[in-house]
Design a protein around this nucleic acid. Structure first.
Ligand code: SF4
Ligand code: SF4
Lengths: 138, 138
DNA sequence: TCTTATAAGACTAATCTAGTCCAATAACTT
DNA sequence: AAGTTATTGGACTAGATTAGTCTTATAAGA
């Protein structure tokens, strides 16, 4: 399936929503209702995005979150890495390479690495601004 | 993570192995040992590949499987579809669109569709021959 | 008939996903 | 100061997927 998970999608939708509100804050409830996203889940997602510096919280009444970065500055790779870890089309690629039994004799590590890089590049070069305008960069 | 599953990888490795044996058959055991792939699992994988017409079984002593198609003719998309279903970077894309709560108001279906198509094209235009030569086509 | 294979099905443990629920804390309003 | 609105952080869950295993049946050459 090669799916991006829901946190990534909901996270992006929320960031696009915030961008459209410009400097104003939007509460989790407002975003959840406006975008039909489960509120408790979106709350978790926003916490993660806060910790990564995409948004800034505002406590108390009339509080919520606001964007701290421009959409043109945030790319899809950062978001997916935040919620799904590094893109690795095969488990042995990148960082700790687990325990694939076929590794020693594997004939496809090298092409898988190339394929992986293609996908990484595609994600990296697609900003949220690109997404908002319904296009990918490459 | 965006990972391709093990069946896909093991399946490709097995097909490359068969190709290298040219017209000869190779048994599941031989392939499993030669490639360090769990035998019972590879057996399952080969059954699926037989049902999709990638290989042909030969029963009995000295039996095994042989390739029925050229590596240049098999692309990565077919293999992934065989073992992981259609590529859909978001669950709502393609065929039966499940039940995403955000669907009615979703701001990213359209760009996700474009992104999905990019990945499909990348997979589709990469033949196993390309993989064996350590490159992707696009 | 024996042996070597594939065929097919049921079964499993571990992991990931998409959530929920609850108690705590921060800060604005009145 | 109290009440209200919000974020925070933790634990918890059902269901799906993954990566296997095991067992029995069947095909066919020697
Ligand atoms: S070693 Fe080969 S089969 Fe194993 S995860 Fe890496 S690329 Fe895939
Ligand atoms: S969030 Fe949007 S793109 Fe993702 S599955 Fe739901 S409707 Fe489709």
């Amino acid at each position: 399936m090669l799916r991006v998970n829901k946190k990534i999608e909901y996270g992006i939708i929320a960031l696009l929503y915030l961008a459209q509100k410009e400097e104003q804050t939007a509460s989790v409830r407002e975003m959840a209702v406006s975008c039909s996203i489960p509120e408790a889940l979106l709350s978790k997602i926003m916490q993660t995005m806060k910790s990564k510096g995409f948004v800034q919280p505002v406590y108390g009444n009339q509080g919520g979150y606001k964007l701290t970065r421009s959409l043109t500055d945030i790319n899809l790779l950062e978001i997916t890495q935040t919620f799904q870890g590094p893109i690795q089309v095969a488990e042995c690629l990148s960082s700790e390479n687990h325990k694939c039994p076929a590794k020693a004799l594997c004939t496809i590590i090298s092409p898988m690495t190339v394929l992986n890089q293609k996908i990484v590049t595609l994600f990296e070069s697609t900003s949220l601004e690109n997404l908002a305008n319904r296009k990918t960069a490459i």
